[in-house]
Design a protein around this nucleic acid. Structure first.
Length: 590
DNA sequence: GCCGTTTTCGGCCCGACTGTTTTCAGTCG
């Protein structure tokens, strides 16, 4: 009896395993419930509870499915109480949630889509539904076109116009910009703002300052003699598609790229608190304000207040001081434990670009790179590095002219010649060898044993099941020649999901075999992500931050890798290519 | 729905802008 039910359980498990990554699935269900409850007009704090829980789950390193299986106490997770723990259990065990099904019976699912329309929130959507029976974006568009909306109580012609525009944009909504791309817009907008009359301070806050891998909009904070002048100047930026709002201290524009930019002007005496406030994250801010509240203080973007008196706010550190904490780096401000760490004096001393001593993943003309070994070495030496590794593709990557055993040997000889010519940097002999479908490697052990380091990578068969893909990679890590697993999930931000793997298992295996995981610094990869990095750190697994350069310029991508590493709480000693060559070589002897 | 070194009940971050208003609701971040 018991045995049977456990078999059923396992069967259902594996079905879920096959479908979606369970944590993401659960978070999505909770977000959806929050939207539905909001439209229903439920208690906003209940709505927030679902969103908080979803955020916790998204940034959880552990696999919830395993936690349920091992009967761990889910209520120890922040924002998860008895009720939501039960719901998580239900999702893991049955693959769905009855509460969600009930809500979707009750509320037309199309209404959730309407939330994406600018200017429409739960209250207005409810009115549109109750008075006009609108349940879809199409019906909304038609009603607006027929002038039916402006006649509703609380609505008017302006709002109707806004909705008309909003319906078109709603479909594109949700687009996020890779950090590096956002940076190029930041540069332009900031340059424009700096020519504004009377501008004093300027800083880009928001998720951009937190170095999030993608950015939804830009938040720019300024101080100025006459803020309205700066805002007037702001809305004259050449690349504007649309001005959403323009007030005395605040304005929002949409760039022609569809990137939204918010500008906020504050007084000097409020600059620090405003910077903290607009840097976020929202979850971090709420947590900080709650602490302040308990201490009888009030924190808003204008300062820290006791009674009616501002007692601080000029510097960002003032905010932390007010709640008895040391400064917390922006990259950590996600309410993922940074406040607790600050309180206990265990904040990480985050890695910086200066700590990097070399780059362990790059390509040359021997495969799909654009430059010679010597060019790459000289460019890296200019960056002040003391070593690099040349890691071209192996033969399976035919399209890249990947190396077979014979050409690898030739390349090794070539590296030895270049070593004679370029003396101010050490060139390590490496390879990025393909992991074949069964987990074996694309080159013989004999060939690999001549090298200083071996990076193994998945470049094919992305669609294997989670179990098969995990087994494949684990087998590769068991190969005694392998040192580093490149871009461990294979994702391309905004383009391609990663292949499905059990990252915890992979990390355990890497730790056991003396392998390392790569943080690939290509702006489209940033693979590992912040949550995985934190997991690696917590497990004591070291990483390599590498640019995977195919030309000399992209050696500079290292800084994107550093951004990501900092979001993952990574310190210099967690990274192998911060180490001097001698120690690195020891680490590479597994 | 969560949470608790003043609380197991009664709180839950806080302000700007817009449009529709004649004093404010709704949305947004």
């Amino acid at each position: 009896m018991r045995k049977n039910s456990s078999i059923d359980f396992k069967k259902k498990f594996s079905q879920i395993l096959e479908s979606v990554l369970i944590n993401q699935q659960i978070a999505q269900i909770f977000y959806r419930i929050a939207d539905l409850l909001e439209i229903k007009g439920e208690n906003p704090f209940r709505v927030r509870a679902y969103r908080n829980a979803a955020r916790t789950i998204e940034s959880l390193g552990r696999n919830l499915q395993e936690m349920v299986e091992q009967d761990e106490d889910l209520t120890s997770l922040p924002g998860i109480g008895k009720d939501l723990a039960g719901k998580i259990r239900e999702i893991v065990e049955t693959g769905s949630l009855s509460k969600l099904q009930e809500l979707e019976q009750e509320i037309p699912p199309g209404l959730v889509e309407l939330l994406k329309v600018e200017g429409l929130g739960p209250k207005r959507i409810k009115t549109l539904h109750d008075k006009l029976g609108i349940t879809t974006l199409e019906q909304l568009r038609d009603a607006a076109a027929q002038g039916k909306i402006q006649a509703l109580p609380g609505f008017g012609s302006k709002l109707e116009e806004l909705i008309m525009k909003g319906v078109v944009l709603a479909k594109k909504e949700g687009r996020r910009f890779r950090w590096a791309l956002a940076e190029s817009y930041v540069t332009e907008v900031v340059k424009h703002l700096k020519s504004a009359p009377g501008l004093k301070k300027i800083e880009v806050a928001g998720s951009f300052r937190r170095k999030k891998e993608t950015v939804g909009d830009l938040d720019i904070l300024v101080t100025a003699r006459k803020p309205t002048k700066v805002i007037e100047h702001f809305v004259r930026f050449h690349g504007i598609k649309n001005i959403i709002s323009q007030g005395r201290t605040k304005s929002t524009i949409i760039l022609s790229s569809d990137l939204q930019v918010d500008l906020r002007a504050v007084d000097e005496e409020s600059y620090g608190s405003a910077l903290h406030y607009f840097t976020g994250s929202k979850a971090h801010n709420i947590a900080i304000r709650s602490i302040a509240q308990k201490a009888g203080l009030k924190i808003n973007e204008y300062g820290v207040f006791e009674g009616g008196n501002r007692i601080a706010g000029r510097e960002e550190t003032d905010i932390f001081k007010a709640v008895g904490l040391p400064f917390i780096e922006p990259e950590l401000r996600e309410n993922r434990g940074e406040i607790e760490a600050a309180a206990s004096g265990t904040l990480p001393r985050l890695i910086t670009l200066d700590h990097i001593k070399g780059d362990l993943h790059m390509h040359t003309r021997w495969s799909d790179g654009k430059y010679e070994i010597e060019d790459m070495a000289k460019a890296a030496a200019k960056l002040g590095y003391s070593y690099i590794a040349i890691t071209d593709h192996s033969k399976r990557m035919a399209i890249t002219k990947g190396l077979d055993e014979k050409r690898l040997l030739e390349q090794v000889e070539e590296i030895e010649r270049v070593r004679e010519k370029v003396k101010d940097i050490t060139i390590l002999k490496g390879i990025e060898v393909d992991i074949l479908e069964d987990g074996s490697l694309d080159l013989s052990g004999e060939a690999l044993s001549t090298l200083d380091l071996v990076i193994a990578a998945v470049h094919s068969k992305f669609k294997l099941s989670r179990q098969e893909q995990t087994r494949r990679i684990i087998r590769a890590l068991e190969n005694p020649h392998v040192n580093i697993l490149a871009h461990p999930t294979g994702r391309l931000i905004g383009e391609r999901e990663g292949y499905r793997v059990d990252m915890e298992q992979i990390m355990k295996k890497a730790l056991e075999t003396g392998c390392f995981l790569e943080l690939n610094a290509q702006p489209a990869r940033l693979d590992l992500n912040d949550v995985h990095l934190k997991l690696a750190k917590d497990m004591g697994l070291k990483i390599a931050i590498s640019t995977d350069s195919h030309n000399t310029d992209s050696l500079l991508f290292m800084r994107y890798g550093i951004n990501q590493a900092r979001r993952g709480w990574i310190e210099p000693q967690d990274v192998i290519n911060t180490q001097p060559l001698e120690f690195l070589n020891k680490l590479l002897k597994r």
